[in-house]
Amino acid sequence: MTAESHELISIRTPEQIVESLKADRSPRNIRACLPPADRGFFDRDYRRAMAKATEELDLGPVNALLAHWWHMARMKATGEYEAVLEQGARVQDQIERGEYVPGRPLQEVLAERASQLGVELNL
């Protein structure tokens, strides 16, 4: 039996995916909320993290991995992921042209975003 057999067959709206992620942060649900093209990457990362957790008796890496993929699923459902990539490309172009790029330190931005989402970051 594969994880595919447990997934919802119906197409969900971005709002439904976000609500699902808020209610259920299990590996199975996170995987089901990812676009199909990302599920193989999730599977690979999850298996590696679980193997490491088994060896080291430490679930920290598994929890960090699930937090990462939870954010990815949410950002991909809402279109934030593409917006971040586009913004990054614009900033990279500015840097390559030698232009000044105003902004805030990355750690500050990440801490603010994590606070808004109710997630703790270990930076």
Score class of each variant (00 low, 15 high):
N29M: 11
R28L: 06
V91D: 15
Y100K: 13
E96F: 00
S26P: 00
L59Y: 11
P35V: 12
A37D: 05
M50K: 07
Y100L: 13
I30D: 05
A64K: 13
G79A: 14
F41S: 04
C33E: 09
R28D: 03
W70R: 02
V62T: 13
A77F: 11
E108R: 04
Q107T: 06
A53W: 02
E82W: 01
E108F: 01
S26L: 00
D43G: 10
P105W: 08
E82D: 12
E96A: 00
L106C: 02
H71T: 15
Q107C: 01
G103C: 05
D58R: 05
T54D: 13
G40W: 00
C33N: 14
A73M: 10
V62A: 07
T54M: 06
G40P: 01
A32W: 06
A37G: 00
A89S: 10
A37M: 02
E108V: 02
P105T: 05
Q107N: 08
G40D: 09
S26G: 01
Q107G: 02
A83I: 03
G60F: 06
D38S: 11
Y100E: 15
G79L: 13
G40V: 02
T54Q: 11
K76C: 06
L59E: 14
E82R: 09
A64T: 12
A37Y: 02
V101S: 08
W70I: 05
A51S: 11
Q107P: 01
Q92I: 11
P102Q: 06
L57P: 01
H68V: 03
Y81H: 15
G98E: 12
E80G: 03
A89I: 10
N63A: 13
E55N: 12
M50I: 04
P61V: 02
V91L: 12
A89Y: 07
D43P: 09
R39E: 05
D58I: 03
L65I: 07
E55Q: 13
A53N: 00
D93V: 03
V62W: 14
N63S: 10
K52W: 03
V62H: 12
D43W: 12
D58A: 04
A32M: 10
R25W: 09
G60E: 10
P61S: 05
P27N: 07
M75V: 01
P102F: 03
R48N: 08
P27H: 01
V101E: 07
W69K: 00
R74N: 09
H71A: 15
H68F: 10
T78E: 14
R74Y: 13
N63C: 04
R25G: 15
L66C: 07
R74H: 13
Q107W: 03
V91T: 14
M75A: 11
